[in-house]
Design a protein around this nucleic acid. Structure first.
Ligand SMILES: [Mn+2]
Ligand SMILES: [Mn+2]
Ligand SMILES: [Zn+2]
Ligand SMILES: [Zn+2]
Lengths: 146, 146
DNA sequence: ATTGCAAATGATAATCTTTCTCATTAATAA
DNA sequence: TTATTAATGAGAAAGATTATCATTTGCAAT
């Protein structure tokens, strides 16, 4: 029974700070997430987690992403493939949006303070406070103008 | 066998124009859709369709919304309740966005040319042509300032 | 108006993602 | 170290959507 050994990730610390029980599986999933800079779905997270510690079930991955999301540790994204995708909340960079390449499916992140402000103003103008923005744009690469 | 009788809807005409076979069921679903000004999901469309003509199955509603969407007659929306919702493409009003009331779930439509332009510019600035914008904002009604 | 045929439909099975159940295991605090 | 309480694993169940296939129907050509 070889316990996998790896350092506690920033997310594992966050988990502890929120008073959540830090189990081996959560430590593993937190490690995998901290190590990712893309937007994996649950199946992909499971694949990565199993590589770190085979003693993990997909049910636990589902449970853990839900728990982390409820605690503001993870953000759930919907890029329209039928499965939820996840990324660390407030990673290095702050709030951001996503551009999806129509042909390759590649996800490109971007920030835009003007967009932040405009959305906030629009919603305020309608008598509401902005709670969540769900925005992704699909684009097709322009042919280089010769 | 009483055939339900109702006029051909604008969507039924569109269906014919695209060369799609205009079956009784499609005529009914088109009628129901033309008659709706909200964002029904498939179950709700089925309920409304059955009221017009009981000889219809939910499988056909699923097939028809897919067909209509593939042919640009309908737009599919995702407001995050797990089921797809539909509305007529290019109805009376042009492109628009959706504000969802966080407490009631009510969907409020809005247009904003400045937002249209900004998104277009952002995407273009990243070397892409804008194909689709998927945007909905969740907001909470502001307490009236006393 | 009839006929023929490809396409659509109804009923239901299958699929896919996510959640639930429950017996077993493990994390934390005393 | 032990006791307690929550988490886990494996698989069943749920919910939405698509697929299957025998039967029906729209419609174009007679
Ligand atoms: Mn920003
Ligand atoms: Mn979705
Ligand atoms: Zn991102
Ligand atoms: Zn709308």
């Amino acid at each position: 029974m070889k316990e996998p050994t790896f350092p506690d990730s920033p997310l594992a610390d966050l988990c502890r700070e929120r008073g959540l029980k830090l189990t081996g599986q959560r430590r593993t999933i937190a490690f995998v997430l901290s190590d990712s800079d893309d937007h994996p779905d649950v199946e992909e997270l499971y694949r990565r987690a199993v590589e770190v510690d085979p003693r993990i079930s997909i049910a636990t991955v589902y449970r853990t992403v839900r728990l982390f999301e409820e605690n503001g540790i993870l953000q759930r994204r919907d890029f329209g493939g039928g499965r939820a995708r996840y990324e660390v909340a407030d990673g290095d960079h702050g709030d951001h949006y996503h551009l999806i390449d129509a042909d390759s499916g590649k996800v490109i992140e971007f920030e835009n303070p003007e967009l932040d402000a405009l959305l906030d103003n629009i919603v305020r103008g309608m008598g509401y406070d902005l709670v969540t923005t769900r925005l992704s744009v699909v684009g097709r690469k322009k042919a280089k103008p010769r």
